[in-house]
Amino acid sequence: MIEDLQLETLINVVYEYYGFDFGSYSRASLKRRVDRIYQLDGFQRFSDFLSKIRSEPEYYKRLVEEITVNVTEMFRDPSFYKILKDEVLPNLAAKPFIRIWHAGCSTGEEVFSMAILLKEANLLQKAIIYATDINAKVLERAKKGVFGLQLIKQYAENYRNSGGKNDFSNYYIANYGVAKFNDEFSERMVFSQHNLVSDGSFNEFDLILCRNVLIYFDKDLQERAITLFDGSLSTLGYLALGSKETLKFASISDKYVQVNKEKVWRKLK
């Protein structure tokens, strides 16, 4: 494993050369991610690693892409999707227009899951999903709506466990080992790069999902990101976090009420 001091040096170099601040990321996880790419790319000396980051912007991009975690699946945590379907969407249904923000959408599996729920609730046509991530590469993949066919069996099982009643295979076309999800879903999505560390609010939303992103931030940055979500959420809108993340310690928590003990909070004022 790389040394603490080396990690701090890297954080400073990245900030100095590229203006990106990893200083508020959880150290234990960041250290593992940096060590992973250091080993993966076969470096022997940390100074070589640093000078490559300094001198090659393309390599810096790779560093960011490899540091950010992009492990995701469709209908991850089925009980969470059940709450979306049974509690959240019915309460948004009366709105003339539904705006949703997926912050940290990675390769898009959860965005397409959301779109399927919207379609089944007959809300897809009046909804728009803004899906953002810091990593441009995963956004390119997300846009395509193409996922490995070998994963679909698990996704279909998650879908059924979340209360899905339809034939999951209606939602995609299988070909050459991949599943391409229907265009009616991606037509309702807007993908763009957004950085929770430095970018601000860009719209007002009825539902914001940010799942398993805050775990990589320290408490100060978590607080900042939650404040950003709060400022981007309409009254009576919903904020959804990952299954081990909480709003409990956030300064804005008294404005929110938790929905059915799941990681969904409704903004009351």
């Binding site: 959880s26 150290r27 234990a28 996880s29 593992r32 991610r33 975690v69 492990v71 398993n212 775990i215 990589y216 990952g242 081990k244």
Partner: peptide, 13 residues
């Protein structure tokens, strides 16, 4: 994972 100041952090990688 373990952080300084006795915090646990989680990682879904």
């Amino acid at each position: 994972l373990f952080e300084k100041d006795n915090y646990i952090s989680l990682d879904a990688s």
